[in-house]
């Protein structure tokens, strides 16, 4: 149902490095799961709207008033690598 190319494509979109072995396992497992949920394909849903939110709330807006900010030290505290007051980024080719 899902081939290796699709697995590779989706893994790239997801930014997940998968070994060859993991790709194969993933292919089998995803195919298995999709097979189990395939029955929704046969439902007639043409006139059914989608539900994205279950609460009927609208217009929740915050006032444009500054709040307390983090100190630079706090902002950078958990970063694996910092330089020059910023978060280090790997080499971009």
């Amino acid at each position: 149902m899902i081939d290796r190319d699709t697995v590779r494509h989706v893994a790239r979109l997801s930014r997940l490095r998968l070994s060859d072995e993991e790709q194969e396992t993933m292919r089998e497992e995803l195919s298995g799961i999709l097979e189990h949920i395939e029955h929704i394909q046969s439902l007639d849903l043409d006139d059914v709207p989608i539900t994205t939110h279950v609460v009927e709330v609208e217009n929740v807006l915050g006032e444009d008033v500054p709040h307390e900010e983090l100190s630079v030290e706090e902002a950078l505290r958990e970063a694996p690598e910092v330089a020059g007051g910023g978060f280090s980024v790997p080499r971009m080719g």
Binding site: R15, L16, R17, E78, P80, F87, P90, R91, G93
Partner: peptide, 18 residues
């Protein structure tokens, strides 16, 4: 792996993410 959490060694950005 940029602002918090674990970060892998990588040669470039794509490898870093993946």
């Amino acid at each position: 792996g940029m602002r918090y959490g674990a970060r892998a060694e990588a040669e470039d950005l794509l490898e870093h993410f993946e």
